[in-house]
Computed example of a mutant assay.
Amino acid sequence: MKKYLLSFALAFMSLTAFAQSDYEKVMKEKISKLEACKSVDEFQTLANDFDRIGKKETKQWLPSYYAAFAYIQKGRVQMREGKMDELSVQANAAEKYLDQAESVAGKDNAEIHLLKKMASSLKMMENPAERYMTDGMKAMEELKKAESLDPGNPRVALIKAEDTYFTPEQYGGSKTKGMEQFQDALTKFKTYAPKSAIDPNWGKAEAEYFISGAAK
C-alpha cells in the first residue's frame, strides 16, 4: 500500500511538473511575440491568446497581466494613428484583466500597478483637458505605488521618462530631462533580473530606441 501511494505521489508530481513546463513554454512563445507586434490586430490576437491561457491557469496572474498589456499596447497604436475616441475601450479591457491578475497576485505587485498607470493614462489622452483631474491623477497615484513597491524597477523609470519627454514644457515636461531618465531606465535594465523566464521583462528596446536618438 505504501509503495502504491509513493508511486501515485511520484506520478502526480511528474504530471504537475509537466503541466508547469508546458504552461511556461506556451507563455514564453506568446510573450516573445509581444515586442514584435506592430498592428492593432496583432495585439488583439495576443490578448485573446493570453485570455485563453488565463482561463485554464486560474491560479496564475501572468496570463491576465499580459492580456492587459496587449490591450494597452493596442491602445497606444491607436493613439499614434489618431484614433483617440477608442482609447477608453482598450483601457477598460486592460483594467478588467488587471483586476483578475491582482486577485491572484495581491495588491502589492508593482508590475500590475504600473499597467494600471498606463491604462489610466490612455483614458486621459482621450480628452486630456477634461480627464486630467480624474484619470490623470489616478495615473500618477498608480505610478507612485509602483515605484514605492519596486523603486529599482526599470519599467517604472521608463514610464516616468516617457511622461517627462512627451509632456509640453509649460506643463513641466522636458525632452532633455526625459532623455536623462531614459538613460537611467536603460542602466536599471542592465542590472534588473526578472523573477522568472516569463515574468515582465519588456521595455529595454524602447529605452534603447530613445537613447539612440531614433525618436527625433
Score class of each variant (00 low, 15 high):
6 L>K: 13
6 L>G: 10
6 L>H: 06
7 S>N: 12
7 S>R: 12
10 L>M: 10
11 A>S: 14
15 L>I: 13
16 T>G: 09
16 T>F: 14
18 F>Y: 15
19 A>V: 12
20 Q>H: 14
23 Y>V: 03
23 Y>S: 03
28 K>Y: 08
31 I>C: 05
31 I>T: 02
32 S>E: 10
32 S>Q: 13
34 L>K: 03
35 E>V: 11
36 A>L: 15
36 A>Q: 11
37 C>R: 03
38 K>V: 06
40 V>H: 00
41 D>V: 06
45 T>Q: 11
46 L>I: 01
47 A>T: 06
48 N>K: 13
48 N>Y: 05
51 D>K: 15
53 I>C: 10
53 I>M: 14
54 G>R: 04
56 K>A: 09
57 E>Y: 10
58 T>E: 13
61 W>G: 01
63 P>K: 04
64 S>Q: 04
65 Y>M: 09
70 A>Q: 04
70 A>G: 09
71 Y>N: 03
72 I>M: 01
72 I>N: 02
72 I>G: 04
72 I>C: 00
73 Q>Y: 08
75 G>H: 04
75 G>T: 01
76 R>M: 13
77 V>M: 08
78 Q>T: 01
80 R>A: 12
81 E>Y: 05
83 K>G: 02
83 K>I: 01
84 M>N: 07
85 D>E: 08
86 E>Q: 05
87 L>W: 01
87 L>P: 05
97 Y>S: 02
97 Y>D: 03
102 E>M: 12
103 S>C: 11
105 A>V: 05
106 G>A: 05
109 N>D: 15
109 N>P: 10
110 A>C: 11
110 A>W: 07
112 I>Q: 09
116 K>T: 01
117 K>D: 09
117 K>G: 13
118 M>V: 10
120 S>V: 04
124 M>Y: 00
125 M>Q: 02
126 E>A: 07
128 P>S: 00
129 A>G: 09
130 E>M: 15
132 Y>P: 05
133 M>R: 11
134 T>W: 07
137 M>C: 01
137 M>T: 03
138 K>A: 13
139 A>E: 01
140 M>E: 12
142 E>Y: 01
143 L>S: 08
146 A>C: 11
147 E>C: 03
153 N>S: 09
154 P>R: 02
154 P>D: 03
154 P>M: 10
157 A>Q: 00
159 I>P: 06
162 E>A: 07
165 Y>Q: 07
166 F>R: 08
169 E>Y: 13
170 Q>D: 14
171 Y>W: 00
173 G>V: 01
174 S>K: 01
178 G>N: 04
179 M>I: 11
184 D>F: 05
185 A>N: 01
187 T>W: 07
189 F>S: 06
190 K>M: 15
190 K>V: 12
191 T>H: 13
193 A>I: 15
193 A>F: 05
196 S>W: 10
197 A>D: 15
198 I>Q: 10
200 P>I: 06
203 G>R: 00
203 G>F: 04
204 K>V: 00
204 K>L: 06
209 Y>Q: 05
209 Y>G: 00
211 I>C: 10
214 A>D: 04
214 A>C: 14
215 A>G: 02
216 K>I: 11
